[in-house]
């Protein structure tokens, strides 16, 4: 084997190697550097919508989940300024939907909640929009509660790319966005979604849930009750 000179970037001064084609996020995760993120899941093509993963490269803000790593890049991530912006973005996600953690069964397993804890969010700060959103309970095994959807499109990607079904899609823009499903009636029960689909495993919030789970796992025994989202998301790749 010949000498292999891997290329590197730095993140907050730490030297991080990368392979051609990797994004800053990929390189960071491979090197156990946590950059907060919600719409990114290494199993799927990056989407770049939540902007939580924003970092500074040469003085410019970029989404690290979509930005390719380039030799010599100097990346700033864990700074006061960037974490402040991440906190604001997270707070906006909370007020744009109806996220009522105390009665939500995803509490303790929810990435939105876990990121909020990680960023030290103590209150939503902004005024709640209290939008009117539809709950779709027509599927025998799945509940779609749009109140909790953050439009990450992970279910869209999983259904299209893994399940080959195209059950979900996003319609409208910005605050008018809705998660729609692929059936003439517009109801989930009339799609070919199955509870075993990949799309059912990727929702970072409690928007897409298997029915009748509720609080079977007690509060206190859930993943983020004992681990930060940083540990969980970096730890994933070792398993």
């Amino acid at each position: 084997m010949g000498t292999f000179m891997s290329k590197t970037i730095t993140i907050d001064g730490q030297v991080v190697p990368f392979k051609e084609g990797q994004t800053i996020m990929d390189a960071a995760m491979a090197a156990d550097v946590y950059i907060p993120h919600l719409c990114h899941n290494p199993e799927f093509t990056p989407h770049g919508s939540c902007k939580l993963c924003t970092v500074k490269v040469n003085g410019r803000n970029v989404a690290s989940c979509t930005m390719p790593a380039v030799e010599g890049q100097q990346v700033l991530s864990d700074t006061l300024e960037l974490n402040d912006e991440r906190l604001s973005l997270t707070q906006m996600l909370f007020v744009e939907g109806n996220h009522i953690c105390p009665s939500c069964e995803k509490s303790g397993n929810c990435q939105l909640q876990a990121v909020a804890y990680y960023l030290g969010m103590m209150s939503p700060h902004y005024n709640h929009f209290y939008p009117q959103r539809e709950v779709d309970a027509s599927h025998p095994d799945v509940l779609l509660d749009r109140n909790r959807c953050i439009y990450c499109e992970l279910c869209v990607r999983a259904s299209r790319d893994v399940d080959g079904k195209n059950v979900f899609g996003l319609s409208g823009r910005g605050i008018g966005s809705t998660l729609v499903v692929n059936s003439a009636s517009g109801l989930l029960g009339d799609t070919n979604l199955a509870a075993t689909d990949k799309a059912m495993q990727v929702c970072p919030t409690g928007a897409l849930l298997k029915k009748r789970q509720g609080f079977t796992v007690p509060i206190g025994q859930r993943i983020f009750d004992h681990h930060t989202i940083k540990d969980v998301q970096l730890g994933d790749k070792h398993e």
């Binding site: 105390p102 009665s103 939500c104 069964e105 709950v135 309970a137 509940l143 029915k211 009748r212 789970q213 509720g214 609080f215």
Partner: peptide, 14 residues
């Protein structure tokens, strides 16, 4: 109303 029954026991505590 309009919430799934398995949430109820937790919501009513509020």
């Amino acid at each position: 109303q309009g919430r799934p029954y398995w949430e109820v026991a937790s919501i009513v505590q509020r």
